[in-house]
Design a protein around this nucleic acid. Structure first.
Lengths: 148, 148
DNA sequence: ATTAATAATTGTTCTTATCAAAAATCGTTA
DNA sequence: TAACGATTTTTGATAAGAACAATTATTAAT
């Protein structure tokens, strides 16, 4: 009864949130002259991390071949560097260029700024419960995805 | 200080939630033999609503021409009916077939079921704060999108 | 009665993404 | 050490997703 109503409300909320978050990502990517895929790819880089093509593909849930082209674009735009891994010449060592690093830093900052603005519209007493509840939600969601 | 940390945490959370929710939608669509677009389209139908092509396109943030093809698919799969609006013969009256209605009902039920399962993993005391906080988050997000 | 405006469709084109095949390299084992 | 199998990336072909422009059918307005 209570549970059902909350479940229903939660379902509608996540549905709307999903749509709005997607819209937000599109806007942010546009602002920086990147495609959504490029934006997501950069966003998944730790600022001074070195990974190979396949790892990124797994993180992004895309095929390696798709990743090759996305990285092609980011290399052409000079946001990332791609060189053969000397330890295993089958691998590509993909890293952020300095230009890429500063953009990622800027993107992360903008991303956090937006959420700070959003938090400003919410009663500070609710900040803590909001984040912890969302953590639980994420955890539960991941668990559901695993078993299905 | 406090605000910054919460903003950062919230940014990471919504980022991960977005990815997981997208994955969840993909899974659900697959289960029912629908494309993501078709799934989203059906999900946007009130169970006994009648709308025209353009309205749906606006709701889904897609072009009318794209919508024509999506609806083509759903008509072929016999989930919806499409007929000329007698009041204004330029319009198409798009409605759910009985088959479509039961599917939508089923989809909604499954959607709520998932969230009920998720809520089961969360302390009941947190259900109320979670939903209200999410409502605020959604509101604030919409406000941000409007002004940008 | 003609012109302007609106809704849907069709054809074309671009982007996004996958798959299969090829090329390069590595590890293992006969 | 030569050969075979496995792995990583890339390339080419192809399918699906989406937008845009042009077309058709209809309505509204002057």
């Amino acid at each position: 009864m209570e549970l059902n109503q909350h479940a229903e409300k939660l379902a509608n909320l996540t549905f709307s949130l999903l749509a709005n978050c997607q819209e937000k990502e599109i806007r942010l990517a546009e602002i920086h002259g990147l495609t959504q895929a490029e934006f997501r790819c950069l966003r998944l880089f730790g600022s001074d991390e070195t990974v190979n093509n396949k790892k990124i593909a797994e993180r992004m849930n895309l095929s390696p071949s798709r990743l090759t082209r996305i990285i092609d674009g980011l290399v052409k735009k000079e946001y990332i560097l791609r060189e053969i891994d000397p330890n295993d010449r089958r691998n590509m060592r993909v890293t952020l260029s300095s230009k890429g690093q500063s953009l990622v830093k800027q993107l992360n900052k903008a991303y956090v700024d937006i959420h700070r603005e959003i938090l400003k519209d919410i009663d500070p007493d609710q900040h803590e419960p909001l984040t912890t509840a969302l953590e639980h939600l994420l955890e539960a969601l991941e668990k559901w995805l695993e078993k299905s």
